[in-house]
Computed example of a mutant assay.
Amino acid sequence: MHRRLLLAAGAALPVAARAQSAVPAMASFSILGDLLREVGGERVAAGVIAGPDTDTHHFQPRPSHAEALRGARIAIRNGAGFDAWFDRLLASTRFAGVTVTATEGLALRPATGHSHGGKDPHAWQDVRLAIGYVRNIEAGLLRADPAGAEVYRARAADYARRLEALDGWIRAQVATVPEARRVVVTSHDAFGYFGAAYGVRFLAPQGMSADAEPSAQQVAALIRMIRAQGVTAVFLENIGNPATLRRLAQEAGVRVRGRLYADALSAPDGPAASYEAMMRANVGLLVPAMRGEG
Rank of each mutant, 00 (worst) to 15 (best):
E164G: 13
R161W: 00
A180I: 04
E164T: 11
L222F: 06
I170S: 01
N136G: 09
I131Y: 01
I223R: 10
E213V: 14
A220D: 14
G168C: 05
V183H: 13
V183T: 09
Y198T: 08
P146V: 09
A147Y: 01
V185E: 02
V134D: 07
A144G: 11
P178E: 11
D145M: 08
E150F: 05
Y198R: 03
H188T: 02
G148I: 10
A196K: 14
A190H: 11
D189A: 14
E164D: 13
F191R: 04
G195S: 09
D211G: 10
R143I: 04
G168A: 15
A180C: 03
R143N: 03
A165D: 13
A172H: 06
S215H: 12
S187K: 01
V219K: 12
Y133P: 08
R162G: 15
A154F: 04
E138F: 04
L142D: 03
F202Y: 14
E213P: 02
S187Q: 15
E179N: 00
R181G: 01
Y152H: 10
G207A: 11
A149P: 01
V151L: 13
I137S: 10
G207Y: 10
D158F: 06
A216C: 06
R143G: 02
A160F: 00
P205N: 09
F194M: 13
F191V: 05
E164C: 00
I137E: 09
G199I: 07
A154I: 02
I137R: 08
R182G: 05
Y152R: 06
S187I: 00
A160G: 05
I137A: 12
L141T: 06
E179A: 15
D211C: 03
Y152M: 04
D211W: 12
P214M: 11
A172T: 14
E150V: 12
A197L: 12
A144T: 07
